[in-house]
């Protein structure tokens, strides 16, 4: 399932749900924070992604409640979603580690020493 790289918006959404269930607006704020303000997900786009991930069984509705007279539905990662996110995180970690290694490898050090 993770042969292809995951889209960034999907990765951010799954990451935002990794530590705790969250409702719609909290997800938008969390994605904004995780991406350092680079990705602002709009309401329609968010619900499109949520519906897709719900259908793919990567997330689930964790709770439906009324808070201060407002409808609140919280979403959480399923076990499958957790596995997919972990696999993607490992793939990214491996790529980042390799990039770090090459940037700081012996050839670079030798070149810097010669400079």
């Amino acid at each position: 399932m993770t042969e292809r790289a995951m889209q960034e918006s999907t990765l951010l959404l799954l990451t935002a749900l990794a530590d705790a269930p969250r409702h719609g607006y909290a997800l938008i704020k969390e994605i904004d924070a995780i991406s350092g303000g680079r990705v602002t997900m709009r309401t329609g786009t968010l619900y499109g992604a949520l519906d897709r991930l719900l259908q793919q069984n990567l997330i689930e509705v964790a709770a439906e409640e009324i808070v201060d007279g407002r409808a609140r539905r919280s979403y959480a990662l399923t076990d499958a979603g957790r596995d997919v996110l972990a696999t993607e995180a490992e793939r990214l970690r491996a790529v980042a580690a390799e990039a770090q290694r090459r940037l700081g490898g012996p050839a670079v050090h030798a070149r810097r020493a010669l400079a």
Binding site: G24, I28, R42, L46, R70, R73
Partner: peptide, 23 residues
Amino acid sequence: RGAELADVFADTTADAGRLATAR
């Protein structure tokens, strides 16, 4: 989902200008 969408919309546009609200 109507009420839920309306709440998220209200939160995201609370301090937004006209252009941001329109988008």
